[in-house]
Write a protein that binds this DNA or RNA. Structure first.
Lengths: 234, 234
DNA sequence: GCCTCTTTCAATCGATCGATTGACTCCTCC
DNA sequence: GGAGGAGTCAATCGATCGATTGAAAGAGGC
């Protein structure tokens, strides 16, 4: 057998719960998708509820592997570098959010936990939201440092709000504009506009904004020199 | 009898579906809350699904009565007036969203329709989202007119994203900051920061921002003189 | 071979779901 | 007073829900 039953159940539960919600999915469908027996859910997890909580916890623990958030682990050395990094993050995050990646799944679970919290909500905050808001706050502090320290988390929420809106309200936005967010050109234009709007909100000089947007389109590392910023395990 | 059974069913359905979702509520609970019999749902609407759709349609048709959106029916005569109006709208909208008003119910239904659309989604777009985005776009066009016309709807989405984020992610934001958004001071601070962030994103002059925020705290009509801008039916 | 522990499986549990029935009450019109 | 439609009601339908059972299958130790 390729994967053990508990993992297969968690995978199936993640896909189904994320797309149709807790009440919208029955344990039989989960078991079928996982090629397992219904009773295996009770055997391995205790019940439907416990499976859901375990699935959310696991999904949130996978946060460090999401590429957009990895970007924010860098420490930009100047305001301009920080602005470039933020542009890169915004584009990367939006790509993950509107594509079919794990970011979208996380966002959907995030949304469900927000509207009806489960026992896993503490894990969602601790393992996912708090670290991400921290990292975003730090980058923002580099861009617009002349603020009281307690302002940065709120500004981080603003950036998150702008981005998540295109996930939460995607159905409506696509219906209003008749422009699908699936493909590249429209999505890239949205990312650019969000970046511009955000940098202006962070009091970035106009010429910095243009340069940051341009530099953020370069492939990998922000400036040519300096040590490689990779901090992941491998 | 105070209200007719169909209205009582719609009222009960609105409260229950908005808070727990379509799958999370049974028709018996709806009927109980409405002091009606289960069979009355089938008799008056045809079934659970039809009741839900009728409820959403009715809720969206009540949009013009939401106070924040009424504000945007004004036509500000200057950029500064427009900025003041936007500040007022942001504060008013956030108050409705985080309070217990009909705005919050609409937002919750909006959210559910976005994540799993029903047959009522066209009505949501036509009766609620499109007019509101239009009104917001027009105000934004007054504040930052030197843009291509197709940019304004997107900027309106940005404002909506910033605001709705405090509804969608409210659970997490309150847990992160340990500051409840129920009462006034914190909520007002959030509204001020959103307004400042937005106006900067709309390239408003800094001295205009300060004055707009200050003026927006005045009670009713923006400037002292001029005709009363009320355009509602009554 | 035999015992033990883990895991899987078909079958079934009681509860609840939305839908539906047929009798009953109430009001109106003739 | 009686016919007829509108609306309400308790009761029940089959289906599905999550939970649970006991037997069967597999793996490892002796």
């Amino acid at each position: 057998m390729a994967v053990r039953t508990p993992d297969a159940l968690l995978d199936a539960a993640e896909a189904l719960f994320a797309s149709r919600g807790y009440e919208g999915v029955g344990i039989r469908e989960i078991a079928d998708r996982a090629d397992a027996n219904v009773a295996s859910i009770r055997y391995h997890f205790g019940g439907k509820r416990e499976l859901y909580v375990a699935m959310v916890r696991r999904a949130m623990r996978h946060r460090p592997t999401l590429s957009a958030w990895q970007l924010l682990e860098q420490s930009p050395r100047s305001r301009r570098d920080a602005a470039t990094l933020l542009c890169r993050f915004i584009r990367n995050f939006l790509d993950g959010l509107l594509g079919d990646s794990r970011t979208a799944v996380c966002a959907r679970l995030f949304q469900q936990e927000a509207s009806s919290p489960s026992e896993a909500i503490d894990d969602v905050v601790r393992d996912f939201i708090a670290p991400n808001v921290d990292a975003l706050s730090r980058t923002i502090a580099r861009i617009d440092p002349d603020r009281a320290p307690d302002e940065f988390p709120r500004l981080a929420q603003f950036v998150l709000g702008l981005l998540l809106h295109y996930h939460v309200s995607r159905t409506f936005i696509e219906r209003l504009t008749d422009a699908p967010l699936d493909r590249g050109p429209n999505r890239a234009a949205v990312a650019d506009d969000i970046a511009r709007f955000t940098l202006r909100g962070l009091r970035t000089r106009e010429d910095f904004i243009d340069r940051a947007l341009e530099e953020s389109r370069a492939p990998a590392t922000p400036p040519p020199a300096s040590a490689a910023p990779k901090g992941t395990s491998g």
